[in-house]
Computed example of a mutant assay.
Amino acid sequence: MTEEPLHDAPPIDRWRLDALLEAPVKGKLWGLPQIAAFLGVSVDTARRWARLPDVPIYRPPGTTSYCAFQSELRSWLRSKPTD
């Protein structure tokens, strides 16, 4: 007799694990100073990166603030080529 899986969810990879382990409030960063501090760069660099299409830094419609999710930033950093 073979056991059936309890669920058909995909396996947890390191990106999904980041998202699962983050508390909802702690997972979201508001404002370029918070985003820059998380990334370890200056606010000017975070602003420049936010203009690039592949960087997960968002500016919600109708606001002047930026926001980002820590798990998405970690994933992007992992995929970013090293210089």
Rank of each mutant, 00 (worst) to 15 (best):
A46V: 04
E3T: 15
G40I: 01
R51F: 11
E72H: 11
M1H: 14
E22W: 12
R78Q: 08
V55F: 04
R78K: 13
A37K: 08
S75T: 10
L17A: 11
W49V: 06
R47L: 04
A36T: 02
V25A: 12
F38N: 00
A68Q: 05
W30M: 15
A23D: 10
L20P: 06
L73T: 09
F69L: 11
S42D: 11
A50D: 05
P5D: 06
P61I: 11
P5I: 01
R51C: 03
D13P: 15
P56A: 04
E22S: 05
P33V: 10
K26M: 15
I57R: 00
L32S: 01
A46R: 01
C67Q: 15
L73P: 05
V43R: 06
A23F: 04
R78T: 07
L21P: 09
P11C: 04
D54N: 13
R16W: 09
P60I: 12
P24L: 00
R78L: 12
E3R: 14
S71G: 08
A19S: 12
E22Q: 08
P11R: 04
A36I: 00
P61H: 11
T63M: 01
P81N: 06
L21H: 10
L39W: 00
T64F: 06
V41R: 03
D8R: 15
T63I: 07
D18S: 12
L39V: 00
D54L: 02
W49N: 03
L20V: 03
L20M: 10
E3Y: 11
V55P: 07
